[in-house]
Design a protein around this nucleic acid. Structure first.
Length: 324
DNA sequence: AACTCGTGGGC
DNA sequence: TGCCCAAGAGT
């Protein structure tokens, strides 16, 4: 009986060892000098970087991470910070509830783990905002554990080099997890470098668009290249961004971050012809104009505001909306 | 399993 | 310009 699910062809130990050698050797020279990779970076610094890097490019994270770490060097520092300060420090990194969850994780670390970042994968998984990827990443990069790290870069490298497809698809499959496990070096220290190296290869060379196959250390092993670099099978187009609740939420959050005082809710929900607010609150004018310029009806704006309130990203007061 | 949740840069 | 993408998590 053939199982109903597709099982990946096993990777020969010889090929696996060749990939380990070629990619980790490449990494020794090519790796970027990122602050959260330095030996003196604390586990907390690694955790903060991993949360910020969720769906957010490295170049945008770098300055925010540095400010964040000098302001809140440890979990206890962040745990006692005002939420509004946290959301303003998050700035425009996007997905601001990550900032809320990071602070919730800091409080859990203080309350339940004596103020120290847990080293155990399962314990990390229980913290808010930490899923399978981030738990593995912290266990590996902060504590040198042997865990299989699977992010979008690693999935793409595996898809091309081993499976022979251009892109891995949107969701992580069980077959991809099995393949990643198969490819993991048995040796703990090598496995740590392997995780780092494959991720870096995906970020710098084996990129989603215009991969630099001429610079790839495993070009001669690559199943996708050998197959003639077939184009990706087109995936269903996702939701448009223009005119969505998300766009409105983002614009409202930008107003609240820049506001010195509560913002009347009508300013945030009116669709057109607003009496532009008096310039008494310098800084809000620009984000307020951007919000107003969006093509979104009032009911959508109200829905977006309600969503922010129910997510704890904003609070209603008598004077209007503010950060928590 | 399919959706939601921000933001800005590249092509 | 419009679309795709970036060290995902939670529901």
């Amino acid at each position: 009986m053939t199982p109903a699910y597709a099982s990946p062809a096993p990777v020969s130990p010889a090929l696996a060892r060749k990939l380990h050698r070629e990619i980790t050797t490449w990494y020794d020279d090519a790796q970027r000098d990122l602050p959260w990779r330095r030996p003196d970076c604390s586990p907390w610094g690694v955790l903060v970087s991993e949360i910020m890097l969720q769906q957010t490019p490295v170049v945008r994270v770098l300055p925010r991470w540095s400010e964040w770490m000098s302001r809140w060097p440890g979990p206890a520092d962040l745990a006692r910070a005002p939420v509004a300060d946290v959301l303003r420090a998050w700035d425009s990194l996007g997905y601001p509830r990550r900032a809320l969850r990071l602070q919730a994780a800091a409080r859990a670390i203080v309350d339940q783990h004596d103020g120290r970042v847990p080293a155990d994968h399962g314990t990390l998984l229980d913290l808010p905002g930490i899923g399978a990827y981030t738990a593995a990443a912290v266990a590996v990069f902060a504590f040198g554990d042997r865990q299989t790290v699977i992010d979008t870069n690693i999935r793409r490298v595996h898809a091309r080099a081993v499976t022979g497809t251009a892109l891995p698809g949107k969701t992580l499959t069980a077959a991809q997890t099995r393949l990643a496990d198969q490819l993991m070096p048995r040796d703990r220290e090598l496995s740590v470098r392997w995780n780092q190296a494959v991720m870096e290869l995906g970020a710098l060379v084996c990129t989603a668009r215009s991969p630099k196959c001429g610079e790839c250390p495993v070009a001669t092993d690559c199943a996708w290249l050998a197959a003639g670099s077939p184009p990706p099978v087109d995936s269903p187009t996702g939701q448009r961004w223009h005119g969505t609740d998300r766009q409105v939420r983002g614009a409202v959050m930008a107003v609240l971050r820049s506001a010195q005082s509560a913002v009347p809710e009508e300013w945030l929900t009116v669709a057109r012809e607003v009496n532009m607010p008096p310039g008494s609150d310098p800084g809000v004018d620009r984000p307020l104009e951007k919000l107003l310029a969006l093509e979104a009806p009032e009911d959508q704006r109200r829905r977006a505001v309600d969503g922010l309130v129910s997510d704890g990203l904003a609070v209603r007061t008598a004077a209007g909306l503010t950060l928590p």
